[in-house]
């Protein structure tokens, strides 16, 4: 009995610790502005998306999305505190208010987006990915069927784990999942030969392979097991922050559609100022219309964003382009005009 009581006391003490966050009902947007710093949850371990460089800075597509948000909300893309999070920690970190928003290779799904599920809200997709399988060339495995009864290394607590199960189950193939908490362990397990294949998003496979000793000895199979639209996310109860995030992402895509880049943004602003007839451009750059105010940002937020990160195409080229360390063909991540799926609603 005495032991039981002490346990209850311990539990209660624990609960007190985690119960004091999210006290004020106002939007997190104001909190970020007052704090003058954005707390952005990232992975920190995926080259090309968010990776801690040897000079101590974070770099990658996900990191640039954080920078775009900081530029739009605070006006300074450097005022960011990055929080590296594991897949398992990320949603709790948003719900408890430990981070303002998440920009961490997170797949946009119904359960995560709904109030009855994880209770988040997603911004528009910043990278369309799909789950794939990587095998050693010498293994002569060429499709999913060749992997029957084999072990497969997979990261636990992700949609990856569910997708691989769905794929094998619907094909009635038995398999053994070897689950690790961390992508680095998945890679180690695969390279050490514990599994015949490793599975993850194809972008992550490509990123991991770029770090191998002999990248050419590994192939990514043609089987694509899932749609993996990766998107930033925030607390589902905070509509204001979600609105701001949504339109910051669209501004990156819209800027690329209109050919507005980091280098010509000043010129474009001048043109817009001098030509009152260019209504859409004037609205987009915040000279007319007061669009920014409607989402709790300054009217010229687009200018601040493009000045600090460039448009979506520039961000992509910088981290995943042909000359980057993790080249991934743009494929469906092109603009809709060029055969991809990225499109922005009008800034009206």
């Amino acid at each position: 009995m005495r032991r039981l009581v002490s346990v209850i006391v311990g539990l209660a003490a624990l609960s007190a610790g985690c119960a004091t966050t999210n006290q004020d009902n106002s939007s997190r947007l104001n909190l970020i502005k007052n704090r003058n710093e954005l707390i952005c949850g990232v992975s920190g371990k995926i080259p090309g998306f968010s990776f801690l460089k040897s000079d101590g800075t974070y770099q990658g597509l996900d990191v640039d999305i954080c920078k775009a948000f900081a530029a739009a909300i605070i006006g300074d893309s450097e005022k960011i505190q990055y929080r590296p999070l594991t897949a398992a920690e990320r949603f709790t970190a948003i719900k408890t208010g430990e981070i303002d928003l998440l920009s961490r290779n997170t797949t946009f799904t119904l359960s995560r987006d709904s109030s009855g599920g994880n209770g988040l809200t997603f911004a528009p997709v910043v990278f369309h990915d799909g789950q794939g399988l990587m095998v050693k060339k010498e293994s002569e495995i060429s499709s999913l069927k060749d992997l029957a009864n084999k072990s497969i290394c997979v990261g636990s607590g992700t949609t990856t784990e569910q997708n691989i199960n769905d794929a094998f189950e619907s094909a009635s193939l038995p398999y053994t999942p070897i689950k690790y908490q961390d992508l680095n362990q998945v890679v180690a397990g695969y390279l050490q030969g514990r599994c015949s294949a490793m599975t993850s998003d194809r972008s992550q496979l490509a990123a991991a392979r770029s770090g191998f000793k002999n990248p050419k000895e590994h192939i990514i199979l043609d089987d694509v097991l899932s749609k993996e639209p990766l998107a930033p996310a925030s607390d589902g109860q905070d509509q204001k922050l979600a609105d701001a995030m949504r339109w910051v992402v669209y501004s990156l895509i819209s800027a690329e559609e209109q050919g507005i880049t980091k280098s010509n943004i000043d010129k474009k602003v001048q043109i817009a100022k001098n030509n009152p007839q260019l209504k859409p451009l004037r609205r987009f750059l915040g000279i007319d219309g007061g669009l920014g105010e409607k989402i709790g940002l300054s009217n010229d937020f687009v200018v601040k964003v493009i000045k600090s990160t460039g448009n979506y195409g520039e961000i992509y080229e910088r981290h995943l382009g042909q000359n980057s360390e993790v080249p991934i063909p743009r494929g469906q991540n092109e603009l809709y005009k060029k055969g991809g799926v990225h499109i922005s609603p009008p800034f009206n």
């Binding site: 949603f91 709790t92 719900k95 995560r112 209770g119 636990s156 689950k179 690790y180 908490q181």
Partner: peptide, 19 residues
């Protein structure tokens, strides 16, 4: 990579959001 109760809990938290 051993599936003990903590590892399985970890997966379930991620799938259901019921930390």
């Amino acid at each position: 990579g051993y599936s003990d109760i903590y590892a399985i809990n970890d997966t379930i938290i991620n799938q259901t959001g019921r930390a």
